[in-house]
Design a protein around this nucleic acid. Structure first.
Lengths: 198, 198
DNA sequence: CACTTTCATTCACATTTGTGAAGAAATGAA
DNA sequence: TTCATTTCTTCACAAATGTGAATGAAAGTG
């Protein structure tokens, strides 16, 4: 069974017709390490479900600095949002993306385009829940992110990462983690030292 | 005409039936300055549209510190989100609120309950757009908030506020603005001094 | 009006975080 | 393996931000 369909069926019950309708609009896509899967400024017109490989999403400010928004991969540790290669904001509103998503390794993915999701949503009421779950999740995550950034300092943010998603430290380079936390790599290093031996 | 209906009809075209259906489920509610309109930990079960008065939403961390999430008021300067007294996250998912919303002045508001919105949404497809616009807007705002906090320092955040919503400085006390920006009141004061005479 | 309370500002100093440079460690390529 | 490249850590110092106390301005109250 298609991995994406399997994933979705954890959250909503799909009839046979739904499953078939869904599978019919899905296709496979692969990217090479270094490829830009989504480009800042372009409209993100499909949702990609990661099957294998790692990616990261980030934005670049006017000075050219990169800020990691999230990490993308598919394994036992993955959270909902980690599976998807998409700028929700851009996808849902069909506006230019703020994010760039870059393959850190070769990527295998399953793709569902904006036009295709429209088709199946209009046919099958059940599938509306997919979009609803995804946007609710996206909202929840971004809310938590804003909350954390507003209320916590660098050390607290790192401790929260250690608690909530410690596996990221093994999967991704520390300078990417640092930019995810909103600190300089050297500062992250200092925090790690400080915390390891109190 | 009901102010809330008027507001909504800027965004979606309401048939006469829709308008009547909507007006039937709306009611007026007032609060005294200091009242808690939404309480952190409680489920937020209605959307309130501000007619007059000012409020702010904030969360309190484990140490009792307050962080201002947003400001709420209705006048020429108001942005979409400023009109509404609601924790979207709590409202949409019917989960405990992260926010407390407190009346800073006496408040007149129009209320639309969760159960009532369900009723009219099922009757009138058109009104589905209300929820969709509101949640998309909420998402957009929280996204921008997270983005700004991740990528900008205190000075840049203050300059952005000066650019995007300078009227807040006249409407709300500076220590509240400071907590909205995520800085100490003294630091905001220092930034203001620094920026006023370069 | 005088009195009290709240808020904004300022200052000195502490703490946190950033920065550039250097070297150590890890990784990848031949 | 060896060599080159990348990443991580460490350090010294700089810049940004927090903190507590003091002051004065503004607003509210009688």
């Amino acid at each position: 069974m298609n991995q994406f369909v399997k994933f979705i069926s954890q959250f909503i019950s799909l009839s046979n017709e739904d499953t078939i309708a869904l599978e019919n609009v899905l296709s496979n896509k692969s990217y090479k390490a270094g490829d830009k899967i989504v480009q800042q400024g372009n409209i993100c017109n499909s949702i990609l479900f990661t099957v294998s490989g790692k990616a990261r999403s980030y934005f670049v400010n006017h000075e050219g600095q990169e800020f990691t928004w999230n990490f993308h991969f598919n394994d036992a540790d993955s959270k909902f949002e980690n599976y998807f290669l998409v700028d929700y904001h851009s996808f849902l509103r069909q506006t230019p993306s703020h994010l760039t998503i870059e393959a850190l390794e070769d990527i295998e993915a399953i793709t569902l385009s904006y036009t295709n999701i429209q088709k199946i949503v209009s046919k099958s009421i059940n599938l509306e829940k997919v979009a609803s779950i995804m946007s609710a999740t996206a909202y929840q995550n971004v809310h938590k992110r804003a909350f954390t950034l507003l209320t916590s300092n660098a050390k607290e943010r790192y401790l929260q990462l250690l608690k909530d998603e410690p596996y990221l430290l093994n999967k991704f380079q520390h300078y990417l983690i640092a930019s995810y936390l909103g600190v300089a790599p050297q500062s992250l290093s200092r925090l790690r030292k400080e915390i390891s031996k109190p």
